[in-house]
Write a protein that binds this DNA or RNA. Structure first.
Length: 565
RNA sequence: UGGGGAAUAGUGUAACGGUAGCACGACUGACUCUGAAUCAGUUAGUCGAGGUUCAAAUCCUCGUUCCCCAGCCA
């Protein structure tokens, strides 16, 4: 095969870029851009676009990707989002060179281009109201009709447009429209509005402008001004490409190629800024960075690594048809990275006290524990052991069913890195609930191995009661109970599918003392439980952890099946 | 019933006229001081009907289904 110079295996966009390079279409240039509107925060769908655009730039010699804020609507956009978006892109591991770009920096240039269009007789000032414009536009199946102002003279248009800019007219009273074709089968071509009057302060240009460009007009100009070669956007803009091309052709300026790909959907979550904003505004989640949110800042707080997200984006591919990726793939990529990088530590989420009856009352000792079996360089640490311990409640069953390998009356198990213990007695309260276990240990098994070679079926994690640190642990499940949150009964919306159990706060957890100086966003594996991340709410007096994702857990699966039947 | 797009295992993707492959999931089993990780295996697919061809997921025809468009949002 001609693997050396074929585009085989590349996604369709990368294949086009490679082909363009081969034919020297763009004089060896590869320039892409990521153009967020600063009206909300980035989510993992944006990560797909970021990885695509910055990825293509990085993969090609001399390639460049611009971070450009598409800030053409002062009513919706805010400075705070600009900074947050920059932080997210940086955290994901991408770099936009010496400065970010802003559409608002091109407003003057865009205005001049508009004047050029008017002078060419290709744009006119229209006095129709928004309702009238809609009416004149026609429908999907019926052509529109010409605006009565369509035939104004160039001089009059020039003068009116200038007065629009000067602020002589109220909001909504006039627009500048392209003169194309009111009968065009593509509605975007029926004399689209290119400037509207908006007496609103812009977060960067202040009161300087009272007319603002529309997306279709602005976006191609931004791309052109920046000499973008491949302008990559999502599928819904496919219908707009004709207009994108038309503007650039009329102006005769640098003409990037617009390419469209399908946006990302993931099961059990929503992926639109509008819906995410609604969850925040309705108080259904804490904020944009709630660890249940698919936002970049939410994922970060949850404990996702940038590496895992980049890897996920690599695996899902790029295509032209809508699809929904199984969230299990995201979680797989997460575990894959965290397994390699997270220090192991022991923590007990739902404590059950264990007293080792034959262990000396006041004795304590330090046992060696491996920090990360996947990383030989991670070293070891000391873990304190004493007579009173906590183990996980679910690691003990008084009447163990088949396939339950953990502790039970009379049964011997291993405490990780410590000793074999055997349960000798179960203490219950008046309600019959188990409050304490008594066990004996075998001193010969110190470190976790029996000199006589006997085996145990199970190894439990534990903490020393006296030495353990108290912690709060927040457990998360999928935000929605349905794969597709929009699958709802008549009259309901996606919020009716919110998972009432998506957050569970465990207040009385114990973690091993080595976690005393764990820093916010620090990631750990709690052995046998999952990956956890220090929440920013954490303090020296109160440690707080988020469960990023559980370990794969066949036993939990067996139980679930049992409960069903 | 206008225009623009798209259909490959349960899911996501590859194959560019020449053996339908990979990953996730699910299910077995091995190993294990994490019921993790790791390893081995099983499962399952070209939207439909015709046509061209020695050969079709790929080319042609006709269907079917799905997505997007009637903001002075992006």
């Amino acid at each position: 095969m001609n693997a050396g110079n074929s585009n085989t295996g590349l996604d369709f966009i990368r294949a086009i870029v490679a082909e363009d390079l081969k034919t020297n279409k763009w004089d060896s240039q590869v320039v892409t851009r990521f153009p967020p509107e600063p009206n909300g925060l980035l989510h993992i769908g944006h990560a797909k676009s970021i990885c695509l655009n910055f990825g293509i730039a990085a993969e090609n010699q001399g390639g460049k990707c611009n971070l450009r804020f598409d800030d053409t609507n002062p009513i919706k956009e805010e400075e705070q989002y600009v900074e947050a978006i920059k932080e997210d892109v940086r955290w994901l591991g991408f770099d936009w060179g010496d400065r970010p770009y802003f559409a608002s920096d091109y407003f003057e240039q865009m205005y001049e281009y508009a004047v050029q269009l008017v002078k060419a007789g290709k744009a006119y000032v229209c006095d129709l109201t928004p309702d009238e414009i809609r009416e004149y536009r026609g429908t999907l199946t019926r052509p529109g009709k010409d605006s009565p102002h369509r035939s104004r003279s160039i001089e009059e248009n020039l003068e009116l447009f200038e007065r629009m800019r000067a602020g002589e007219f109220p909001d909504g009273s006039r627009t500048l429209r392209a003169r194309i074709d009111m009968t065009h089968p593509n509605l975007n071509m029926r004399d689209p509005v290119i400037y509207r009057i908006l007496h609103a302060a812009h977060h960067r240009t202040g009161e300087q402008w009272c007319i603002y460009p529309m997306y279709d007009w602005a976006h191609g100009l931004e791309d052109s001004i920046e000499q973008v070669t491949h302008s990559i956007c999502t599928l819904e803009f496919e219908n707009h490409r004709l207009l994108y091309d038309w503007f650039l052709d009329q102006l005769g300026i640098f003409h990037p190629q617009q390419l469209e790909f399908a946006r990302l959907n993931i099961t059990y979550t929503v992926m639109s800024k509008r819906k995410l904003l609604q969850l925040v505004q309705d108080g259904l989640v804490g904020d944009w960075d709630d660890p249940r949110m698919p936002t970049i800042c939410g994922l970060r707080r949850r404990g996702y690594s940038p590496e895992s997200i980049r890897n996920f984006c690599k695996r899902i591919g790029v295509n032209k048809f809508n699809s929904t990726v199984d969230i299990a793939l995201l979680e797989h990529c997460l575990r894959e990275d965290l397994n390699k990088t997270s220090p192991r530590v022991m923590a007990v989420l739902r404590p059950l006290k264990v007293v080792i009856d034959n262990y000396p009352q006041d004795q304590a000792e330090e046992l060696d524990a491996v920090n990360n079996p996947e990383d030989a360089g991670a070293g070891t640490r000391k873990v304190p052991f004493s007579r009173e311990l906590y183990i996980e409640r679910e690691d003990f069953m008084e009447e163990p069913p088949k396939k339950f390998f953990r502790l039970a009356p009379g049964r011997e198990v291993r405490l990780r890195y410590a000793y074999f213990i055997t349960c000798t007695n179960v203490v219950k309260n008046a309600d019959g609930q188990i409050v304490e276990l008594h066990c004996t240990y075998d001193p010969a098994t110190r470190g976790g191995d029996a000199p006589d070679g006997r085996k145990v079926k199970s190894t439990l994690h534990w903490v020393s009661a006296k030495h353990a640190l108290e912690a709060e642990v927040r457990l998360y499940e999928h935000l929605f109970t349905k794969e597709n949150p929009d699958d709802v009964e008549e009259g309901q919306d996606f919020k009716s599918n919110l998972n009432p159990n998506s957050l569970e706060v465990l207040d009385a957890c114990y973690v091993e003392p080595s976690l005393a100086d764990a820093k916010p966003l620090g990631r750990y594996q709690f052995e046998r439980l999952g990956y956890f991340c220090v929440d920013p709410d954490s303090s020296a007096s109160k440690l707080v952890f988020n469960r990023t994702v559980s370990l794969r857990d066949p036993w939990a699966k067996i139980q679930k099946l049992r409960n069903k039947s």
